[in-house]
Nucleic acid binder design. Sequence first.
DNA 1: TCAGAATAGTGACATCTGTCGATATGGAAC
DNA 2: GTTCCATATCGACAGATGTCACTATTCTGA
Lengths: 106, 106
Amino acid sequence: MDLNACCTPLGADVPDIAGSEVLASAFRALGDPVRLRLLSLLLTAPGGEVCACDLVEPLERSQPTVSHHLKVLREAGLVTATKRGTNIWYAARAEQLTALRGVLGG
Amino acid sequence: MDLNACCTPLGADVPDIAGSEVLASAFRALGDPVRLRLLSLLLTAPGGEVCACDLVEPLERSQPTVSHHLKVLREAGLVTATKRGTNIWYAARAEQLTALRGVLGG
DNA sequence: TCAGAATAGTGACATCTGTCGATATGGAAC
DNA sequence: GTTCCATATCGACAGATGTCACTATTCTGA
């Protein structure tokens, strides 16, 4: 899913149906409080990345639930996952957030 | 629902649970392709507003469905509705979109 | 090879969401 | 007042979503 391929600012022209579906799924990924806090945790972390193991406790959700939300964000192209040893480190994709900002009329 | 009251950029600090719920509902309102096209229609319209009667056809949805989506956008604070005679004119609230952009790291 | 730890996937469940037809409401025009 | 038009609300339905307990997978270290 490539958000940058469809970064026409909302208002420049009516997005076609396929385009608005891609954009909508990105916004839908942001449309859950747990995922917003998740993204916030990633953006504020020193180094910009957080081990999955450190995300369960602050979110007060079960490990499978957090894993599910991470998958939604991954599939929306908003975060990256890097395997390092047994752990997996997640980071926000700033350029994708920027693209969404552009859609909002930047 | 006041988005401006909670426009801390995502990443500046972890939003508390209540705050992220308000923000999430705004993003959730954007998380549907019909509503994205709706907003786009409003933003591109000359004068920045569109009569509700002119929104049904381009969206290819029934009148009650369009009315429902307009209500979602209204409750999310993203559009305004102005009654003029028999018709109701809708317009996007640019400042609220700007607030959301700020949350995305502006 | 085996045991243990970290993470993802599955299946089930309740709740939410998008959609439409039918109906209600509220003005305008006659 | 009655009729007509524009818009909102209601009721119902199928499908999506958030959540968890359970299980599978994959890596590390002994």
